[in-house]
């Protein structure tokens, strides 16, 4: 069964929220493992893993350095040299946070790497208010590769005209300017043309839209979405209420 993109979004979001609210590291690790398993099964692991690593590795390193070495609130000292003390509490805090963040990041990344962007845009713009948001999302995702290749072309053009990036801040700033100005200028010019074209096709008009792309949806999925949103809200509320009672 093909899921509606909104259903998978609700699934990923609710998973992330509930894991954060539960704040128990066994659950976090289980969610992270489940997300990885889903990614492997869906055949997106090869694209997902580098993206996840780029996000998570610096973050976890930073957490380990920060809390592993310096945790003034910790009292069970393992090793100490100078002002740096490795404490059990610091390490536990760092690992717990890292597991929690990894679970949320992996759940959301599985969604964004598995979702079919045209389906997501169609599902969003079918609901009126989000038409503009859908445009921004789709436009950014399609512009990004185009602009990356344009940056290369501008760089080649400027290099063929004698641009050499020498060391030194001033030279680098000049080189940056030589490449950034044509890029920004062309993008803004194009945006103006696109605005006129969109306006002529009724972009700002309010009212119902029709779409050529039919996104599968069912009563079951609609119910599931509602249940997921309610569950996430309930988890947050329960956590806050318990937290209030605990302190």
């Amino acid at each position: 069964m093909r899921l509606n993109p909104l259903t998978s979004l609700a699934l990923a979001g609710a998973t992330a929220v509930i894991t954060t609210a539960a704040a128990s590291w066994p659950l976090s690790l289980a969610v992270a493992a489940a997300a990885l398993a889903l990614a492997v099964r869906g055949g997106i692991a090869r694209r997902l893993l580098p993206a996840a690593a780029a996000v998570l590795v610096p973050l976890c390193l930073s957490l380990l350095i920060m809390h592993g070495l310096f945790f003034p609130e910790g009292w069970t000292v393992l090793v100490q040299w100078g002002p740096a003390r490795i404490t059990v509490e610091g390490l536990a805090f760092a690992l717990e946070r890292a597991a929690q963040i990894a679970a949320a990041v992996l759940a959301l990344l599985v969604f964004s790497f598995s979702v079919h962007v045209p389906d997501l845009v169609a599902a969003l713009s079918a609901r009126g208010v989000q038409g503009r948001f859908a445009f921004v999302l789709a436009s950014t995702l399609t512009l990004l590769p185009a602009v990356t290749s344009r940056v290369h072309r501008i760089r080649q053009a400027q290099e063929s005209r004698g641009l050499v990036i020498r060391p030194g801040l001033l030279h680098r700033a000049t080189a940056f300017r030589l490449q950034a100005v044509p890029l920004v200028l062309s993008l803004i010019e194009e945006a103006g043309t696109r605005a006129a074209a969109l306006e002529a096709r009724g972009f700002s008009n309010t009212g119902p839209r029709t779409s050529y792309r039919a996104v599968p949806d069912s009563r079951l999925q609609r119910t599931l979405r509602a249940v997921l949103v309610l569950a996430a809200t309930a988890a947050v509320a329960a956590r806050l209420w318990l937290g209030r009672a605990g302190t």
Partner: peptide
């Protein structure tokens, strides 16, 4: 996040 995302800022 319990900290910052970069090692340098960390």
């Amino acid at each position: 996040f319990g900290g910052t995302s970069g090692v340098a800022t960390g």
